[in-house]
Nucleic acid binder design. Sequence first.
DNA 1: TTCAGGCGGTCAAACGTTTGCACGACGGAC
DNA 2: GTCCGTCGTGCAAACGTTTGACCGCCTGAA
Lengths: 344, 344
Amino acid sequence: MASKATIKDIARLAEVSPSTVSRALRDNPRISEEVRARVRDVAKSLDFHPNQMARSLVKRETRIVGVLFAESAGASASMGHPFYPAVLQGLGKVAGERRYHILLSTGSENLSEEAAMRDMADSGFASGLICLTTLTNPEEDAAAIGLPMVEIGHPLDPKNSYYVDNDNVLAGDEATRYLLQRGHRRVLFLGFDGRYIMMAHRLKGFRRAMADYGAAVREDWIVPVRMIENMPDFTLLGEIFRKEDRPTAVVSMDDPLSVGLCGLLQTLGLAVPADVSIVSFNNTQVGQYHAPALTSVDVHPRELGMHAMTLLINMIKGNVEKPTHVDVPFTLVERDSVAPPREG
Amino acid sequence: MASKATIKDIARLAEVSPSTVSRALRDNPRISEEVRARVRDVAKSLDFHPNQMARSLVKRETRIVGVLFAESAGASASMGHPFYPAVLQGLGKVAGERRYHILLSTGSENLSEEAAMRDMADSGFASGLICLTTLTNPEEDAAAIGLPMVEIGHPLDPKNSYYVDNDNVLAGDEATRYLLQRGHRRVLFLGFDGRYIMMAHRLKGFRRAMADYGAAVREDWIVPVRMIENMPDFTLLGEIFRKEDRPTAVVSMDDPLSVGLCGLLQTLGLAVPADVSIVSFNNTQVGQYHAPALTSVDVHPRELGMHAMTLLINMIKGNVEKPTHVDVPFTLVERDSVAPPREG
DNA sequence: TTCAGGCGGTCAAACGTTTGCACGACGGAC
DNA sequence: GTCCGTCGTGCAAACGTTTGACCGCCTGAA
């Protein structure tokens, strides 16, 4: 029943024309205070809610933003990692505050990322897009599609993109430096395979810090682990740590990965942090609850989401002229997985 | 540019009327194969995509379903727990397959659950609602709003609700039975405070299993822990386990909770599973990575989501007459947190 | 030859808003 | 007493589809 009342019903009851109702409800100054009040009352008594479809149709603007997760899988695979829900949380928060809605790209497996974007854009829902960066570069598609879009993560073409990201080279630097400051020099960089831009950046920071401290970086100690069936392949890592000549510390790109490493080390009879220290990334529950609790850099995914949404909404409103980006600060939260290296 | 092409453009180019275009594109049998093909070609060449707003306006049906998370916080607080993303994943999967979209309720803090629902419904977006059950009963609101709605979790009024849930009394039963079968008799039930229906059900199952085995349930061993500042308050639990006369096993309602318990036990010098066994719930990463890995019942949140979405879409299509529910089976995954009790 | 009926298509109304424009009344300046 | 500007409101066209009603044509039966 509620959804029945239309602007015309109000018009009839308030004895004005539909257009007047529309204007009155939108606080158009051309409407007298008296009429406005009358219309308001009637509207309230009918529990009137404007039909957004009709509204959007003429205004060509929905208050909906499409959110596209990596791998086009939408809420799929990626959602396994707590990073994504956290981002979503941030997106949701400011969307709610600004009275926007979030339309999730629920790409089925057979729907490419670009297809998902097009779908959202072409369908006419979605006045803007938020993309979690991937290997492809969505900005091209976005341009083709003609919708405001902001990326979360580092885009391929930063100059021409709107995005929010962490300063990952600084993050890599500081994580490494944290170890170096405590005396470590033999430190291993543990990442994923696949060329994630983020990882390249952190690695860069890693190298920088190492260089700063005059610590040699061994290329065979930069190890990307392959995920096979959702489980990290640690064979290479095992070899490294089995030798006498092994790292005393590692900078690891993700908490779950670090926890896996801990397991490996344990089987090798190596203790954390006594024998090897770990600085991890993402500050997840997995790491917090782990024993020892992981020292981990928190990239503040929630803030990433919040800033992304804020930026996008501003773009939609036409308040942003030039490609912009915002740099969300990270924090290194200290826990129990780092200790000075054994003397030697 | 892409989004420019309208049905009229096609009509002009294909030299037919707009209505014919519409019908041709929708495979209406009244249109000849010849014309249909011609229209198709033109449409393709213009990269035509129907404007969903206009479409929805006349058909009064969007292919959008609103998803409402507990506490109306939308993607907020609740999202911290991996259960929710998993549900979302399931929702997204079938939504994608059926070409539906998911509109997230991004309730800001000041938006009540009911308000969020109304918002989604009244706005005209959302042809149906999915609710993660909470303490309030949304079915009333839903009725008032007049949209198909399915709940995930156990509703207050099962007879008149559409919902998908686990059989939580059975789950509680089996979890407990698992312990009992291994010889435990002194088992504690660890839950949260607040009256979650789900927990009441599991407790019921717990009692049933205990009774079956003739094990006494001690009411002081049914302990709800309070969360204060996101950290469980374990003082009560500490007292219980400090005594000589303590449980040899516990059925715990959530992995993070169980991990917390493990920490507590450790400080008390009690080993898991040697001194106390644990069967946990939710089968999260936190539990998998924990040492010892937690035996935990997996309630299959992803499947919950999938079934919920399937049911809802069927409802929207008018294929469901009577209030229905689907019961998603759970599985107890065995790991390392359970052992027989010490003799004695 | 006429008429019923199917076929293939067009017409126009509808969905519920927004918004440019016209319009009448009124008040003041000349 | 005309002219002009405001002010408050109504008219109607648009937004891009869908859909019921209608229509002309052709075929085949009476």
